[in-house]
Nucleic acid binder design. Structure first.
Length: 286
DNA sequence: TTTACTGT
């Protein structure tokens, strides 16, 4: 009887130690995940405002940027990365696109063939490569960083916006935080069969650019639709961050002080960006 | 080529 009791106690102690290690491991993992996310975000990664099928996502870590991946849309719902001004504008040669097994859905590098859509980068090749290096550049070619974009948007209007970020905005501020992603129609069923392979086709794309000063951060936000010519002035597409939250169901910068957050997100303020100097700059590719 | 495809 006494022997049995001793054995039981020993067993309980072992289980206790095992549980302790699992919990400790979990806490450390969380901590490291948090450290990693802090490198690529400002005031918290985007979260969903209300729990819904279409805004649910999981975070994929990459060198140089993070992705909020949706298994429902089979799309990145957001990417988050930081850029700074660079002296050396040379980058490594453009690599091949790569499948990403983490998406679970088989999105191949040829999935968009013949669809009329480009494999549009969300975290851009050039900016990530110039700021974060070769390994980060390779990561931007994961199919989990792509979303279907019409060529006139991807190669012209969107390209002009990305060029403005690196050549015009980054040199004006020490550091920029950028979040970009797709916008889908309000009603899930209206668009559910509008897909390239398994990948749902967005109706538009957003980009939020923040100069992250703690007291008085500045932000520009854009929504650009698929159907553009490509030579439109960039400032035609200015919106507030609240507008983007309303269209995507995401909550940006939720760790920000509420007063600062509401000012930053509700207004369209272009002071300090000198947008007019680049808004009408023609694209490199006609 | 700071975008990307199609057709070779």
């Amino acid at each position: 009887m006494g022997k049995l009791r001793l054995g039981w106690r020993r067993q309980a102690r072992r289980i206790g130690i095992l549980v302790l290690f699992v919990v400790l491991g979990g806490v450390l993992w969380q901590y490291q995940e948090r450290q990693h996310q802090d490198m690529y975000t400002w005031q918290g990664v985007p979260t969903w405002e209300a729990l819904s099928l279409t805004s649910f996502h999981r975070v994929l870590r990459n060198d140089g940027y993070l992705v909020g991946w949706s298994d429902v849309r089979v799309n990145p719902l957001w990417v988050s990365y930081q850029v700074a001004a660079v002296d050396d504008t040379r980058i490594g040669s453009r690599p091949d696109f790569r499948p990403d097994w983490r998406t679970l859905w088989p999105v191949g590098t040829d999935s968009y063939s013949g669809s009329g859509y480009d494999r549009g980068h969300l975290a851009p090749n050039y900016a990530i490569a110039a700021v974060h290096g070769r390994s980060a550049q390779l990561d931007t070619f994961y199919m989990s960083n792509m979303t279907p974009q019409r060529p006139n948007l991807n190669r012209r209007l969107w390209q002009r916006l990305e060029e403005a970020v690196m050549d015009h905005f980054a040199p004006r501020f020490d550091r920029l935080q950028i979040i970009t992603g797709p916008v889908f129609p309000d009603k899930l069923m209206d668009n559910v069969f509008n897909r390239v392979g398994l990948v749902e086709v967005p109706e538009a794309f957003y980009k939020i650019i923040v100069a992250p000063h703690d007291e008085a951060p500045l932000a520009l936000a854009f929504i650009m639709p698929q159907d553009v010519r490509g030579n439109e002035p960039l400032d035609d597409y200015l919106v507030s961050i609240d507008d983007i939250e309303a269209r995507t169901g995401l909550d940006f910068f939720h760790e920000l002080n509420d007063n600062v957050e509401s000012v930053l997100e509700s207004e369209i303020r272009t002071d300090g960006w000198a947008l007019e100097e680049v808004a009408k700059k023609p694209g490199r590719y006609q």
